[in-house]
Design a protein around this nucleic acid. Structure first.
Lengths: 217, 217, 217, 217
DNA sequence: CATGAATGAGACTTCATTCAT
DNA sequence: TATGAATGAAGTCTCATTCAT
């Protein structure tokens, strides 16, 4: 399953050398949890099933987490970290808020196509743990404010703009994972989001059709 | 509006008068379920708790529903019916698709303020039972197509437009119930949705600020 | 279903004229119970299902029986009565114990073919309520003793002879209802039972092949 | 014989020594189930009661069996295995089908006296799970066919012969456990069974009175 | 740390029985 | 008597959590 792709080789602290096995198990558990999220949602995560999926004994989970609640928390955090990577990598060298937001939306849309499991896990977590929205929100808010400063975005209420951008994007991603691909889905969604934020039609189209950084063109 | 009519003002003792009290229990159960949805979401509905909330014995539930699954189904249907009333009543005499959609969005936003429990229940159900989306979708699609025919909406993909409109609106409603009122929330959200569908700024503002039918002005 | 055949037209008291409807319901319940026995065994008789099968409301059962246990008892008694009729009718005019027993066995075997539902109900009741055996036993014991007196039967222990005759016959009946017809099943079983009781081969065959009274020969 | 080995002489505390105690629980459960069968029959086995009888928590059962159905299955299998031991040990070195069958019948009759609980459990299982009959049947069929080849048995239909032998023997066993001992019960029953299969009186008595192998005479 | 058997609370469901109409 | 809604005990099963090894 592709969900394995984002995982267990790097961690910010990089604990090189010595004791590698130690925290490897923890990552196995988090990865396994994401796979289960994709299948069954957050509410469907049973610790016995998690242990089996991770290839450890059920008791082992409690060597890494104090309770089920803490597992969910940790998985949410893990997902937030992976999320950050997605966003940061994609719009590293871009200054325009509108373009950064557009890139983010398109990146997520493409992620929904390339890794539906991860996407389902994300959607499930966002629904379950409202707190996850803040992880999304922190990046988004910066882009919104930049776009606003730069005269591209015109919104009457920032909180509402954030809510609408996030939920619209997740809704579009959900469409892709549940109903299959749509031609140019990433650009369509990005353009609609830009328009919702007050970017005029032509400009929105223009931004939405810029080549994605990192693409080979 | 009548949607609040089902509620908790009478208890088991007050079955004087009348002679149809038997089937009233079903409505008590549905109402109680909606209250629990609001608190705990669909996944949090335990039949034990439902029985207690409705003031009946656990076995009684099974006089009205064959299984937990059927309870969820029935509550979803109940919600869908109440939903339809909301929408139909609101935009009865309006022909413009854009205006109809705008009225719908604003009506729901106001509902989020006036009946947060019902709204939380709705959000939970939409997330849980994807089928609920079709209830929403059938009304929405008609308005989208009308707006498209009438030259107001310009969207590249209808499915994606529906997904985005629904999720954006629910996201905005969610903001209200979770974080409290926002000045002119209904108009702000409606305008953003219209813009996402390609309605230009000025026109979107104009439509969003039309008086709501049924309002006393 | 053929199970209906033995029922509700006669009762020893014959309560002719006037109030016929009264005790009719009771018979409906007993008949319905037998049909359920055939399908699900005694343990599978649920009073709700019984009420539905009998076409009455569940509460009505308690106008005729004080508890589930009493229903079972009454059905057992009903079955015993029907059983008696079977036996008495068949060997009315026969004096030889061996012949009477043979007729009884053959009659039951044929009943197993012609009314598998009734037979399954009987088997289920015999297993469930050991007391039912005494109803069978009282007829059987007379025949055994007669056959013994007449020099046909030679058994060392009457109780054991009764147990074996009853269980062997029921076992053979069970074979028929569960696995389908067997050529000359009635004669084969009867002959084996006679032999078990010490009747020599030739004589056993002879008795087993006598025409059944009531047959058109 | 070893068949009594599984029983109730140690409780939870006595798990000193040894280091395989884990899988012992399964046997505790099977043993407890047999004791309950003896008291209440297969239909009377409630998992709550089983857990208590076995001295474990109710959840523990599900560490060994996936459902109630699987418990019944496993207990049936256990009983079938113990059954096989009974039969195989008893008539190991005997070639005559008639003698083998006779030994089997007598062994079971004696078992009914020495271990009524086990016998009640067996009877209950045979009634409940028709599949158990095949376990019995496979041994029996071989003996029947051998006796037939050897000119001792004369039956017209093998299936019916099997049904009658099995049910007659179980009926005789049932008499013993329900009504207490009968002088020479094993020989009496065995002789009747042999006669039912066509063995003449004198020969049947002779075979039924042979000393049982394993007896000290 | 790892294991996995054991635990027990709690969920869903069935069903005999009661009772107001 | 008949009805059928309501009851609540009891049963099956799940699962987070503990603990001895």
């Amino acid at each position: 399953m592709a969900t394995n792709a984002h995982s267990n080789t790097r961690k910010k602290s990089q604990l090189t050398r010595g004791h590698k096995k130690k925290a490897r198990t923890r990552q196995q558990l988090l990865d396994a949890a994401l796979r289960i999220y994709a299948r069954a949602g957050v509410g469907g995560l049973a610790l016995n099933a998690l242990a089996e999926e991770a290839g450890v004994s059920n008791g082992t989970i409690y060597n890494y987490f104090r309770s089920r609640e803490q597992v969910l928390e940790a998985v949410g955090l893990e997902l937030a970290i992976q999320l950050s990577e997605q966003i940061l990598v994609a719009s590293e060298a871009v200054d325009s808020g509108a373009e950064r937001l557009c890139i983010a939306v398109r990146t997520f849309m493409n992620k929904a196509l390339s890794d539906p499991d991860w996407t389902r896990a994300l959607i499930s977590v966002v629904r379950y743990a409202e707190g996850m929205r803040s992880a999304l929100g922190s990046y988004l808010r910066a882009d919104l404010q930049a776009g606003h400063r730069q005269g591209d975005f015109h919104y009457a209420n920032e909180e509402m703009a954030m809510s609408i951008v996030i939920s619209a994007t997740l809704g579009a991603m959900n469409l892709l994972v549940e109903q299959g691909p749509v031609e140019h889905a990433d650009r369509i969604a990005a353009k609609m989001v830009l328009q919702a934020l007050g970017v005029p039609d032509e400009q929105a189209r223009h931004i939405a059709e810029l080549p994605l950084p990192g693409a080979q063109g």
